[in-house]
């Protein structure tokens, strides 16, 4: 059960997709503030075509805010981007006017959320909603859009897709609704899909179906996926690369197998040790003391230092810089 050392090598990013070369998405020095408090601080991250990147962290670490900022969907105000750039398709998303952004959202970048019910309109049929997404971005007749919607529903594994076109969201299960959201996200063939806790509200047996589907789709289409999750097991099983966030910063980033075998940041190390699955049944878990700091109450220096078993004096004074790829970490006293 643990995201313990991997025994089976991952198939890696979809082949062919990498021929595209540079990153699809390139976030550089992103800082997001809420009033005076930094929610996200100096975050840099690249995502390549066909890759599934896990962005993992606990509540308040800034992972969802980072995701929203990629879509330029931050609640501005009160939040605001204080610094940085989000490179996508040769342009800085942060510098684009709203009308240009609207074309990118849904077309080139799509997003799915934890609770599909809140993203679907309860008074329209599933078919109408997917067709609407298609009509917004593509020059199609309504009939052609509905036919395409049916194809998309079949592709995401909805049984009897023609019949499903006429159903309303409440007539579907949580798993089916998430499939519909994925179908809508796929409608315009995005280059990047941002999936924010897409299976957290689903049962485990359904979670496996949805994650397998996302995995298949990115391999087939070369679409990059940023999978935001708190679940290390999900990351271990599905992601090529993992970025771990704590206190608004990326504290470690590495290829998944490497991160789980050889975590360098003390937070990652402690997190991997503390989960029940990594311990014998009934044994006391190596707990991490204290609680997750919320934005505005983050300690100075390395935000993890008050909870860190290996903290040095300088950890409370100075925030560590992150090292260079392929295995980046920001720790003054890294695990060996």
């Amino acid at each position: 059960m643990p995201p313990a050392p991997r025994t089976v090598s991952h198939q890696g990013p979809a082949s062919g997709a990498q021929a595209a070369g540079g990153p699809v998405l390139s976030i550089a020095g992103l800082t997001i503030r809420l009033g005076a408090d930094a929610i996200v601080e100096d975050l840099s991250l690249d995502v390549r075509a066909g890759e599934m990147l896990g962005l993992v962290g606990e509540s308040g670490c800034g992972k969802s805010v980072t995701a929203l900022s990629i879509m330029r969907l931050l609640a501005e105000p009160p939040m605001r981007v204080a610094a940085g750039a989000i490179g996508f398709g040769g342009q800085d998303l942060l510098a684009l006017p709203e009308d240009r952004l609207r074309r990118i959202r849904g077309n080139d970048i799509a997003m799915i959320f934890q609770e599909p019910m809140t993203s679907l309109n309860p008074v329209y049929t599933v078919g109408d909603q997917i067709a609407e997404a298609l009509l917004l971005h593509r020059d199609l007749s309504r009939r052609a859009a509905l036919a395409e919607a049916e194809t998309l529903l079949a592709r995401v594994g909805i049984p009897a897709p023609r019949g499903a076109l006429g159903r309303y969201p409440h007539q579907m299960s949580g798993g089916q609704r998430q499939r519909v959201m994925i179908a809508m996200a796929l409608a315009c063939g995005p280059k990047l899909l941002v999936a924010d806790e897409p299976t957290t509200a689903l049962d485990v047996t359904v979670q496996a179906q949805i994650l397998d589907l996302l995995d298949d789709l990115r391999r087939e289409t070369g679409m990059a996926v940023v999978l935001i999750t708190h679940d290390l097991g999900v990351v271990a099983q599905y992601c090529d690369r993992v970025a771990v966030m704590y206190g608004g910063r990326i504290v470690e980033e590495a290829p998944a197998a490497r991160l789980f075998e050889q975590p360098r940041h003390r937070y990652t190390e402690a997190l991997l040790r503390t989960i029940p699955a990594a311990n014998p049944p009934g044994a006391d878990l190596p707990a991490i003391p204290g609680s997750v700091p919320q934005p505005g109450q983050r300690p100075p220096g390395c935000a993890f230092h008050p909870r860190c078993p290996a903290a040095l004096p300088r950890c409370s004074a100075e925030a560590p810089e992150i090292t260079a790829p392929p295995h980046r970490f920001a720790c003054w006293n890294p695990a060996q």
């Binding site: 059960m1 643990p2 995201p3 313990a4 050392p5 991997r6 025994t7 089976v8 049984p159 299960s173 798993g175 089916q176 049962d203 485990v204 047996t205 359904v206 979670q207 496996a208 179906q209 994650l211 397998d212 679940d231 097991g233 999900v234 271990a236 099983q237 599905y238 998944a256 197998a257 789980f260 699955a277």
Partner: peptide, 24 residues
């Protein structure tokens, strides 16, 4: 068996997992 198999974790190839079809 399916519940155990559905726990996401590293190093499990898809062929070794039981993924249930359909919903509850």
């Amino acid at each position: 068996q399916a519940l155990l198999s559905a726990i996401p974790r590293a190093g499990v190839s898809r062929a070794d997992r039981i993924v249930l079809k359909g919903d509850l």
